[in-house]
Amino acid sequence: MTIALWVVAGLLAVTFLAAGLMKITQPRPKLVAAGMGYAEDFSAGAMKGIGALEVLGAIGLILPAVLDTATILVPLAATGLFLVMVGAVVVHIRRTESFAAPLVLAVLALFVAVLRFSTYPF
Rank of each mutant, 00 (worst) to 15 (best):
13 A>E: 00
47 M>T: 08
13 A>L: 01
117 F>W: 14
112 V>P: 01
79 T>D: 13
68 D>A: 13
99 F>R: 05
75 P>N: 14
110 L>F: 14
24 I>D: 12
97 E>M: 08
62 I>M: 13
37 G>C: 01
58 A>S: 04
117 F>Q: 00
102 P>R: 06
117 F>G: 01
55 V>P: 15
81 L>C: 07
93 I>S: 06
9 A>C: 09
55 V>A: 13
82 F>A: 12
109 A>Q: 08
13 A>F: 02
3 I>A: 14
110 L>M: 07
88 A>F: 05
35 G>P: 04
100 A>C: 07
48 K>N: 04
104 V>F: 02
12 L>R: 02
97 E>G: 11
18 A>N: 10
102 P>E: 09
59 I>W: 04
76 L>W: 14
14 V>D: 03
64 P>Y: 08
103 L>W: 05
11 L>T: 09
118 S>W: 09
69 T>S: 06
118 S>G: 14
116 R>N: 03
38 Y>M: 03
4 A>D: 04
20 G>N: 10
73 L>C: 07
54 E>T: 03
103 L>P: 06
108 L>V: 06
80 G>R: 11
4 A>F: 01
53 L>I: 12
20 G>E: 00
35 G>V: 06
42 F>V: 01
115 L>K: 14
101 A>P: 09
119 T>G: 00
119 T>F: 15
77 A>H: 05
4 A>T: 13
38 Y>E: 11
76 L>V: 11
13 A>W: 00
42 F>E: 00
53 L>Y: 15
56 L>D: 10
65 A>T: 14
27 P>D: 12
77 A>C: 10
51 G>R: 10
22 M>Q: 14
82 F>I: 05
25 T>D: 11
113 A>Q: 00
13 A>V: 01
75 P>T: 13
30 K>P: 09
111 F>P: 00
30 K>I: 12
28 R>M: 11
118 S>P: 00
97 E>F: 07
107 V>Q: 10
74 V>L: 06
58 A>T: 05
65 A>E: 03
62 I>N: 10
118 S>M: 03
77 A>Y: 03
63 L>H: 02
111 F>S: 04
41 D>T: 11
1 M>P: 01
78 A>W: 13
73 L>E: 03
117 F>D: 02
6 W>R: 03
109 A>E: 04
111 F>D: 05
13 A>R: 00
115 L>T: 06
93 I>D: 11
109 A>G: 08
116 R>K: 10
36 M>N: 15
56 L>V: 12
29 P>W: 02
29 P>M: 00
17 L>P: 00
61 L>K: 04
